[in-house]
């Protein structure tokens, strides 16, 4: 088994007095897509915020290529090559589409992704590159959010609920782009509420329930019963 690119062990997370994660373990190997599933409030977004440095952790709870990174700031984590497509897209409203993409690449990390490649992946964005990012439709905004994360040429791409609030046809077109993205050899963590979607894109799945890992295994090996038990806790 290859060494994981990122390994999380015994991760706790708190919002004030409220504890949102309890001893979460998770590992991603190079080139692997791991799906994180779970009901609303299970702690999926908290997990993403912890990994990306928006929530403070114990240093050795998160290791990147063996190095403890849990206590780093979000901008330091980004510089390592970890990018997040946040839930709800959260584009910069005073920046145009193209500026949103450029600022995603402002760290200057080398790699296959640049403006031209993003426009090739999502041609509609090139057409609309000078409009304010938040003037786009939901699906197009999601493309900008994904493009913005890719522009940093990450080694680990985390996508939090990218299908939330989008029409099925739009979701389909975004997921169709996924093989192209992962084909570049990067690893990914995909957070989804849609279990079928999550299983179809991932090789490994982790289910969260009330802040704890309730199930983990190969995406093709878990039965429906196991998953729904881990998902709903019944």
């Amino acid at each position: 088994m290859p060494d994981p690119i990122i390994s999380i062990q015994g991760l706790d997370a708190h919002y004030g007095d409220f504890q949102a994660l309890y001893g979460v373990d998770l590992a991603v190997e190079p080139g692997q897509v791991v799906a994180v599933i779970g009901a609303n409030g299970a702690g999926k977004t908290t997990l993403m915020r912890s990994i990306s440095g928006l929530l403070k952790n114990k240093a050795d709870a998160i290791r990147w290529q063996g190095r403890p990174i849990g206590a780093l700031r979000a901008d330091q984590i980004a510089a390592l090559g970890i990018a997040l497509v946040p839930e709800g897209r959260l584009l910069f409203p005073s920046l145009s589409v193209e500026e949103n993409l450029i600022i995603g690449g402002q760290l200057g990390r080398k790699g296959p992704w640049n403006l031209a490649r993003i426009y090739q992946l999502f041609p509609i964005l090139q057409e609309r590159r000078n409009v304010p990012a938040t003037a786009l439709s939901g699906g197009q905004q999601q493309m900008v959010a994904i493009g913005r994360a890719l522009m940093s040429n990450p080694e680990l791409l985390m996508m939090d609920e990218i299908s939330l609030g989008l029409a099925p046809v739009v979701i389909k077109s975004i997921y169709e782009a996924l093989p192209d993205i992962v084909g570049e050899g990067l690893s990914a963590i995909v957070v989804e509420q849609d279990i079928a979607k999550a299983l179809s894109v991932s090789s490994h799945v982790v289910c969260l329930q009330e802040g704890r890992v309730s199930l983990t295994g190969g995406s093709g090996e878990l039965s429906r019963d196991e998953i729904s038990k881990a998902y709903f806790g019944v």
């Binding site: 990306s52 440095g53 928006l54 700031r73 979000a74 901008d75 980004a78 510089a79 990018a83 997040l84 946040p86 959260l90 910069f92 409203p93 005073s94 920046l95 500026e99 450029i102 600022i103 995603g104 402002q106 760290l107 913005r148 940093s152």
Partner: peptide
Amino acid sequence: TALGRAFRATSDRQDIAQLMGLNR
């Protein structure tokens, strides 16, 4: 300019600007 972009992005959403590698 890039600096102006960083200013506007930070003004819009401080935490997401950090994700872009900008040290607030």
